[in-house]
């Protein structure tokens, strides 16, 4: 993909979606537009069920029936396969999910996929350093993921996606189930990713910090910028 420094990393225009609710179908996203630049961290807040998670899924092209225009560094989503798009616009779901196996197998999972067939998987030394960097020194690469705490799983799921070096990182309440120490490590890793030129969108519900350069509130299927 040819990079153009004058266009946002991610540009979404008029994103709408209708989902089924208890009282019938309703418009959960109503013409949402959002641009995120390289190195920028954007926070989205809002009440439970207002559509924050739905928006992230739409931006990852993971929402059935979503409409709107998406582009990545000026390249239309239509020109990229869904797999190539998701490899570049990476969503970390709120619930950390490990596949059965060891920590190593989980960290290397992205490189077992066809979309990264041309890339070489990181060596053990790189994986070890990455774990140490997120204060997971006590977790061996051979440990079965069934023996990880929720906080450890959340950080390993984040690490797994960070090591793929996406253009955009979308985090759905990344520290919702974490203690303060683990949440601080996730915040630090997110900050480092943005400092290296990555764009970040965070859906937040509980904690606040000073990382975000822009904040949006979601209500009635629409985004409103609250500070700049």
């Amino acid at each position: 993909m040819t990079e153009n420094p004058n266009v946002p990393v991610l540009c979404a225009t008029g994103v709408s979606a209708i989902v089924a609710g208890d009282a019938g179908d309703f418009r959960v996203l109503d013409g949402v537009s959002l641009e995120v630049d390289a190195g920028e961290i954007v926070d989205i807040t809002g009440s439970s069920g207002c559509g924050k998670t739905t928006l992230l899924r739409a931006l990852a092209r993971l929402l059935p029936g979503a409409v709107g225009t998406l582009s990545l560094r000026g390249v239309s989503a239509h020109d990229l396969t869904p797999q190539a798009w998701r490899a570049a616009v990476a969503l970390l779901p709120q619930k950390p999910t490990m596949v059965a196996g060891t920590v190593r197998e989980n960290l290397l999972l992205p490189w077992t996929l066809k979309v990264r067939a041309q890339q070489s998987a990181p060596e053990d030394a790189v994986l070890r350093a990455a774990l140490d960097g997120l204060h997971l020194s006590d977790v061996s690469l051979e440990r079965d993921t069934d023996r990880l705490s929720v906080g450890q799983q959340a950080r390993i799921a984040l690490l797994r996606i960070l090591m793929t070096n996406p253009s955009v990182l979308m985090l759905d309440e990344p520290d919702a189930n974490l203690d303060d120490a683990s949440a601080a490590q996730v915040t630090q890793a997110t900050s480092q990713f943005a400092s290296a030129g990555g764009a970040v969108i965070r859906v937040r519900h509980q904690r606040t910090d000073a990382l975000a350069s822009r904040r949006f509130s979601m209500c009635g299927g629409q985004l409103t910028e609250t500070t700049s």
Partner: peptide, 10 residues
Amino acid sequence: ILALTALGAT
């Protein structure tokens, strides 16, 4: 499956 497709799985 959501986590895998989000990582780019077919």
